[in-house]
Design a protein around this nucleic acid. Structure first.
Lengths: 256, 256
DNA sequence: AACAGCAAGTGGTCTATACCGGTCTATACG
DNA sequence: CGTATAGACCGGTATAGACCACTTGCTGTT
């Protein structure tokens, strides 16, 4: 591990470097991922790290707390700080769109736009997006493909008032999440999802190119931005034979 | 909101009270849940809270950071700290067993033990539980019912070496998670799950009392304790028409 | 040989203080 | 009238030091 080399800020500095605690997080994460610490091996104590990085113990603790929270390390009072078991899939808990998901699995994502229009919201969708009844929403229905194979039918609803110019984009070529972030400055931070297994109906079977009876996964997803404002409400139908949903659960702290 | 009344520790104190930051978390959570702060309303600034609770600003920040991390509040540099939108289901992310799940929904859970024995682990299960090949595991297959209706078939595998006396319990009457916690002191903190939609096979259809073709949700779950040690590996099949899987996703910090 | 007790080390909590950059507003200037 | 700008206030970062409860190993006694 590199113990020196933290980027100390100077008066003449032009661009702000990462905070010290983030540099420590990155350094320790790199060391652990590179195998320089084995799982369940003890890390140097907080006081030792504070000495080695030449920062205060509180700054070291800030870094270690974040690492513990994301599950990279764990602590035991009186004993020390230890490297956790590597996760089966570290990034399962993160919030990603279809494009990222498929790319991360090493496949080539593609989309076919089946419908794109502005329509009055159904009561269910207006309630989910916290819009007045009958408010206009942008509705975008896409067939999602992975390496050319149909994987899902996805219908996204967004408030028209907030994303009026959205349909000017060609979502066969662009990622919706990328447009939301780059053009509208929307930071998606949280989503509530509901998954359900069902038997596909005739339309779904045809679009997904499966022969009945075929199992599908129906997904409902409400995504909100960093201010807690609902941004999109998605109804998806995934092929059951090609889609596995992986994720991690953490126990709530203090008896939630 | 109650600004006074933090439990200040004294020398003669017998039982340790919650840490100050936890008392502040509880107090603010109570105030927010009671509606004394509206969503998107600004909370007092950190310096004001520090004055009102008579603690240092760092202690207030410790409380606010935890609240922000669990999504109760959000912060904006230069503007303040604000109450977030209430979650659709705050406790979705927590780690619970079937008994808790069903009870939380206001239904009556029940179990019928279909098989309980000690068997050599299959290669897949030995790898998941990080046991040597052919190591012995406790295998417990249960039919899970909610208000008398069959909901799932669940097969749990646990390392025999660690839980040798487990099968002395009657798991038609006792919750596995309760036994693990009370008798073995195991704190389950983390699980990796995989969900998949499928068409139920003949055996499943009969046990779950559905007529084919019926959709089912297959679930695979690896639960680990606080030290990162795998504790149980579960294969479940849920009725698709009666089981919806709800959960929350959070965006990873710093571009995970 | 067995045990009680102490001391050292560990993470957990808390204080008091300082400075930074982002945000907003009132005031003075053109 | 519009626009800079100064200052107040905000959360974010970082310091140095203190005390606590818990764990472990050593040590002296029984």
């Amino acid at each position: 591990m590199v113990y020196t080399g933290l980027y100390v800020s100077m008066e003449l500095q032009r661009e702000a470097p990462d905070p010290l605690y983030q540099q420590i997080i990155d350094d320790l994460t790199t060391a652990i991922e590179a195998g320089r610490f084995e799982p369940h091996q003890r890390l140097p104590s907080e006081r030792e790290l504070s000495e080695q990085y030449q920062v205060s113990r509180m700054t070291v603790r800030h870094a270690l707390l974040d690492l513990a929270r994301e599950g990279t390390i764990y602590t035991r009072v009186g004993k020390g700080t230890f490297v956790a078991e590597p996760k089966i899939d570290q990034q399962l808990r993160t919030l990603t769109g279809f494009t990222q998901d498929v790319t991360a699995r090493g496949s080539r994502p593609a989309s076919r736009v089946l419908a794109a229009s502005v329509v009055p919201a159904t009561p269910e969708i207006a309630a989910a997006l916290r819009l007045p009844p009958q408010a206009e929403v942008v509705r975008l229905t896409r067939l999602r493909l992975s390496d050319g194979v149909p994987l899902a039918v996805e219908t996204t609803h967004l408030p028209f008032a907030r994303f009026a110019g959205l349909l000017a984009h060609d979502f066969a070529a662009e990622s919706l999440y990328a447009v939301l972030e780059d053009e509208y400055g929307v930071a998606l931070t949280h989503a509530e999802q509901v998954l359900e297994a069902a038997v596909g109906d005739a339309g779904e079977n045809e679009l997904l190119e499966v022969t009945p009876p075929a199992a599908v996964m129906r997904m409902q997803r409400l995504t909100v931005d960093s201010a807690g404002e609902p941004v999109e409400f998605v109804l998806s139908t995934y092929r059951g034979d090609r889609y596995k949903f992986r994720f991690a659960l953490q126990a709530g702290s203090r008896g939630v």
